[in-house]
Simulated scan of single mutants.
Amino acid sequence: MRKLIMGIVEFREKMLPQYAQQFSKLALAQTPDALFITCSDSRVVPDLLASTHPGDLFTMRNVGNLIPPATSEGVSTGDLSEASAIEYAVLVLKVANIVVCGHSECGAMKSVFSRNAKLKSPNLDKWLCHANNAAFRLEQEGPLDDRLKAHDQLSQLNVLVQLEHLMTYPIVRQQVIAGALVLSGWWFDIATGAMYAYERTSRSFEVIDRAMAERMIARLAARAR
């Protein structure tokens, strides 16, 4: 807690002067380009990993980067917090992109994979059921990358399952079909610091280096035409 408190002081004394004008503008409105859905894990820091600034990302974080699917009426089958963030991002902020970002060594995925009942955590157990389809897919279809540890294999498949859950929301599906919204699946390897993006053509997560980034941006530009 001391580190957290002193970090606030350091920001106030050293960083705030650089951001003062930006915060003044952001106080009136925000226009983020993307909704970034990721895990609560302390090792995953979206603004650091994407070199973004205040106002760039609308971020939703929870254990396991999970999105409870919606009914045909668009009502969440799980916690309303995630559904509310999706609705606000799409309907109010009108983001053009939604990214679901999983990561290596995810505690949530380890729990789903091991089915550990020793924690006596009924709320967590109920929440993690939204990753059960990913576990089933791993068992039935196998991993995207068999070089990874089993829980990391699950983590990658979980990203794809949560993208499918996103598409159960009518407002998301309508915007995607209209070409106004793009869904992307990313995966962060904590050990190497590398970010990967899922490529449907290769059915694999590929590292986002400069060449990959240029291809991704070109595809986005083509869709915007």
Score class of each variant (00 low, 15 high):
116 N>L: 04
118 K>Q: 14
118 K>R: 14
118 K>A: 13
118 K>T: 15
118 K>F: 07
118 K>L: 13
120 K>T: 13
120 K>D: 14
120 K>C: 13
121 S>E: 12
121 S>V: 07
122 P>I: 04
123 N>E: 15
124 L>F: 13
124 L>Q: 14
124 L>M: 15
124 L>P: 12
124 L>S: 13
124 L>C: 06
126 K>M: 09
126 K>W: 05
126 K>S: 10
126 K>P: 00
127 W>L: 08
127 W>P: 07
127 W>Q: 09
128 L>S: 08
128 L>A: 01
128 L>Y: 03
129 C>K: 10
129 C>Q: 11
129 C>L: 10
129 C>Y: 01
130 H>C: 05
130 H>Q: 09
131 A>W: 03
131 A>K: 02
132 N>I: 01
132 N>T: 05
132 N>Y: 06
132 N>G: 01
132 N>P: 00
133 N>F: 01
133 N>K: 12
134 A>R: 00
134 A>C: 00
134 A>Y: 00
134 A>Q: 01
135 A>E: 02
136 F>Q: 12
136 F>K: 12
137 R>K: 14
137 R>G: 03
139 E>C: 02
139 E>V: 00
139 E>A: 10
140 Q>N: 06
144 L>C: 07
145 D>G: 03
145 D>Y: 01
146 D>M: 10
146 D>F: 09
146 D>E: 14
148 L>F: 12
149 K>W: 03
149 K>T: 10
150 A>E: 10
150 A>V: 06
151 H>D: 12
151 H>G: 03
151 H>R: 11
151 H>F: 10
152 D>C: 13
152 D>A: 12
152 D>R: 10
153 Q>L: 00
153 Q>F: 05
153 Q>A: 06
153 Q>S: 09
155 S>I: 03
156 Q>E: 08
156 Q>S: 05
157 L>P: 04
157 L>E: 04
158 N>I: 03
159 V>R: 00
160 L>F: 08
160 L>K: 04
160 L>W: 05
161 V>N: 04
162 Q>E: 05
162 Q>S: 04
162 Q>W: 01
162 Q>I: 01
162 Q>P: 01
163 L>Q: 07
164 E>G: 06
164 E>C: 04
165 H>I: 04
165 H>R: 08
167 M>A: 09
167 M>E: 14
168 T>F: 06
168 T>Q: 09
169 Y>P: 02
170 P>N: 07
170 P>C: 03
170 P>G: 02
170 P>E: 05
171 I>W: 13
171 I>V: 14
172 V>S: 06
172 V>I: 11
172 V>D: 11
173 R>A: 15
173 R>Y: 11
175 Q>D: 12
175 Q>R: 15
175 Q>A: 15
177 I>S: 13
